[in-house]
């Protein structure tokens, strides 16, 4: 009961805090979504149906992943630098509650991008996709994993390093991840890296639920994401609990 009360109060606090940057975040997500559906086709000489489907389903994944892995760590790193993280840590609120409240707010911030991306893709490609009801848990899981991995990056690394990591990640996600193209096009070493990272699984669950007629959905991808989610959540709460 106490935990629930603290949770609601902290969500209120953080919503007021991010409210300032919410319009900007939404604009960035909209641009990102439009950029993907308009920009990526330029990379391909001719666009067949599979390519189109890949691009259409990659758009929401990419906005989610970049928001989670770039925006979240940057804002959390800033909170760490300016001391608001330490102040909230000095309040009598269990760390888990604090982390859940923060992640809830981040979910709300990153989810508009999904809507933009799906709308933009439909508008550009006009596909008929067979959407599975599993799409809701799939998106929530991807969003939660991306934000909690992003949070963990900021929690573990010093702010400067966290910001640098996000710069590298954004290029990696946009260019070198099997979201806009099938994984079998990856060279062996990169495929090995993606075998461990959660990005490929994010692409798979989104594709597999947004267009069931074209892509398979595997339990393995869900499990991999669940594991990443749990691991990053654990790491973050340990870091938040640690005393200097």
């Amino acid at each position: 009961m106490d935990a629930l009360r603290s949770y609601v109060l902290l969500v209120t606090w953080q919503v007021l805090r991010v409210r300032v940057m919410l319009p900007l975040a939404i604009v960035v997500q909209a641009l990102l979504a439009v950029g993907i559906v308009l920009g990526y086709p330029l990379l391909f000489p001719e666009i067949d149906r599979t390519t189109t489907l890949f691009l259409a389903t990659a758009a929401p994944t990419i906005t989610l992943v970049t928001m989670g892995l770039v925006l979240v760590p940057q804002v959390v790193a800033q909170a760490k630098t300016e001391g608001s993280l330490d102040f909230l840590r000095s309040l009598p609120v269990p760390r888990i509650v604090y982390l859940f409240a923060d992640l809830t707010v981040w979910l709300v911030v990153v989810l508009p991008g999904v809507v933009f991306a799906i709308v933009a893709a439909q508008w550009r490609f006009g596909l008929d996709m067979h959407v599975s009801p599993l799409v809701v848990p799939a998106f929530l899981l991807v969003a939660f994993t991306a934000t909690s991995v992003g949070y963990a990056i900021a929690a573990v690394l010093p702010p400067m390093l966290a910001n640098l990591t996000t710069q590298v990640l954004v290029v990696f996600v946009l260019m070198f991840s099997p979201l806009t193209f099938p994984a079998d096009r990856l060279p062996g070493w990169l495929a090995a890296i993606h075998g461990v990272l959660p990005i490929q699984a994010m692409g798979e669950v989104v594709r597999g639920t947004l267009a069931t007629n074209a892509f398979p959905l595997t339990l393995g991808a869900f499990l991999a994401l669940g594991a990443w989610c749990a691991a990053s959540f654990t790491v973050t709460s340990l870091v938040l609990t640690r005393r200097a």
Binding site: L9, W13, L16, R19, V20, A79, E82, G83, L91
Partner: peptide, 25 residues
């Protein structure tokens, strides 16, 4: 505790920040 560093209350007003802290306490 009142920390030595300024507490960033970005996006809040003093009234909001003080009331919310009181309720969180």
């Amino acid at each position: 505790i009142q920390p030595q560093a300024q507490v960033p209350i970005t996006g809040l007003t003093p009234r909001r920040a003080i009331e919310l802290t009181g309720r969180l306490r």
